[in-house]
Design a protein around this nucleic acid. Structure first.
Length: 483
DNA sequence: AAAAAAC
């Protein structure tokens, strides 16, 4: 089966061939003919299945029926709207649009926040048929009257379930209310919850259901590994793993923005080309970092779940879950960044005792047990199997050390008990005295070395200069009801 | 539970 057989016009076939594709993926085989007919679509597909080309190609062809070669802006009204939940995702979809528009006289733009509006306004004024956007900035343009929706023929909602999670639904509703009734609409979502169905009812007319690759299944080309490890040794283990795979580019997921930045600078300070991407970084930084990673200038990208879904990085061989995600579904999304398009991929998870329930949930969802592998020198403490009870946490906090009982922390910080208690003999303190498992506590430079395994690879480095912290310790502890 | 997204 070729793209020509799906009914694509020569201009698109040529662009597809030049992009290096010969055979349509299952979702493309299903979606392209249906969209070409002008029907509404409710689509369920994982990322990495070719979903984006599955809707951009027929969308472009529909618009190309009446493409206008005039240079007059008035001849280039907005005719298609594609909405995505994150800026990176919008950029990526737009790249696909641009690739396939190469031999078709249609103009497109990507519109998102965090950057100056003027450039976008100028481009809109010159006339564009296809707008790829994140909802907030799009509404901003509506308010400024720099965009008009009265000629919109097609609407695509990508990653609708994520939009829902992110609270975009009111924005989506407002946009829907402004669009012409007579239009073709496509909705893509990884899950079909009641809320998604409600949105689909409102947005789609007589939708064709397209679903490939059963939801929450993972690619067969990915090998999964769990390394049991105590929380305090995680970053040492990470450095160890990275060192033993020197030519491997990897994407590392953490669950908070603070840890994200700290882990990246920790790795960078130890000679690994690493940077961080998360929502508190400026959009310029986010774009530059992602580009540097894609270009191979960074070996390691540390990310929050901003990067969990949809991001397409070619040939990414390894994803590491520094912390397991809080919902099992996010595991599927995160590791979906590797092993794409039939390639081999590795999904490695560093799991401490408190995360075992999450691991069980993940294994239930993906329907198989992930092999566990102890790394010599980093194996989790004996009570690894005792998940959850605060008593075991307290014991664990002092595990292997008899000289000091860090009772202060273990009793006053119940919510952070999965992190190692602070103390002189805490193995969570690295040789440089930097304990980044404690987001809000400053670490005194020159803290005596903890019990680091013999084969730990952290090189000694300069004591970290003490610097101002965003929030004083006393305030935080007070807030948690200390004493 | 945390993350993301408009100014």
């Amino acid at each position: 089966m070729s793209f020509a057989e799906l009914g694509l016009i020569p201009e698109l076939q040529r662009a597809v061939t030049e992009a290096g594709y010969t055979e349509p993926t299952p979702i493309q085989k299903q979606a392209i003919p249906v969209v070409l007919q002008g029907l509404d679509v409710m689509g369920g597909a994982q990322t990495g299945t070719g979903k984006t080309a599955g809707f951009t190609l027929p969308l472009i062809q529909r618009l190309a029926r009446h493409a206008n070669t005039s240079t007059s802006p008035a001849r280039h009204p907005v005719r298609a709207l594609i909405l995505a939940p994150t800026r990176e995702l919008a950029v990526q979809v737009h790249e696909s649009v641009q690739t396939y528009c190469k031999y078709v006289p249609l103009r497109s733009i990507c519109v998102y926040g965090g950057v100056d509006m003027r450039g976008q306004v100028d481009e809109l004024r010159r006339g564009v048929e296809i707008v790829v956007a994140t909802p907030g900035r799009l509404l901003d343009h509506v308010q400024q009257k720099t965009i008009a929706f009265n000629q919109v023929e097609m609407l695509v909602l990508d990653e609708a379930d994520r939009m829902l999670d992110m609270g975009f639904i009111p924005d989506i509703r407002r946009i829907l209310d402004m669009l012409p009734e007579a239009r073709q609409s496509l909705l893509f979502s990884a899950t079909f919850s009641d809320e998604i169905k409600k949105l689909a009812d409102r947005m789609l007319k007589n939708p064709q259901l397209i679903e490939v690759a059963r939801r929450n299944t993972v690619s067969e080309t990915i090998t999964h590994t769990v390394h049991p490890v105590s929380a305090g040794l995680k970053r040492n283990l990470l450095a160890h793993l990275l060192r033993h795979a020197p030519d491997t580019q990897s994407l590392i997921f953490v669950s908070t923005k603070v840890l994200c930045g700290r882990l990246a600078s920790f790795l960078a300070r130890h000679g690994i080309a690493a940077d961080a991407i998360h929502g508190d970084k400026s959009q310029v930084q986010r774009s530059e970092t992602l580009e540097a990673f894609k270009a191979g200038k960074l070996r390691v990208l540390v990310a929050t779940d901003v990067a969990a879904r949809g991001l397409d990085i070619d040939d990414l061989p390894m994803v590491i879950n520094y912390e397991l995600p809080h919902t099992a579904e996010d595991y599927v999304h995160r590791i979906g960044r590797t092993g794409r398009a039939g390639r081999q991929g590795h999904a490695v998870s560093l799991v401490c005792a408190e995360e075992k329930p999450r691991l069980a949930e993940i294994e239930k969802l993906i329907k198989f047990q992930i092999p566990q592998q102890d790394v010599p020198g980093f194996a989790a403490e004996p009570d690894y199997d005792i998940a959850g009870s605060s008593r075991s946490k307290r014991e664990r906090a002092g595990a292997g050390k008899s000289d000091q009982e860090p009772s202060r922390n273990s009793t006053t910080r119940p919510k952070r008990s999965d992190k190692p208690a602070r103390g002189r003999s805490n193995p969570g303190i690295a040789p440089d005295g930097f304990d980044f498992s404690k987001p809000y506590e400053s670490t005194v430079a020159g803290t005596p070395l903890g019990e680091t395994p013999e084969n730990a690879v952290i090189a000694p480095s300069e004591p970290r200069p003490s610097r101002a912290r965003p929030r004083p310790v006393a305030v935080l502890l007070g807030g948690l009801g200390r004493k």
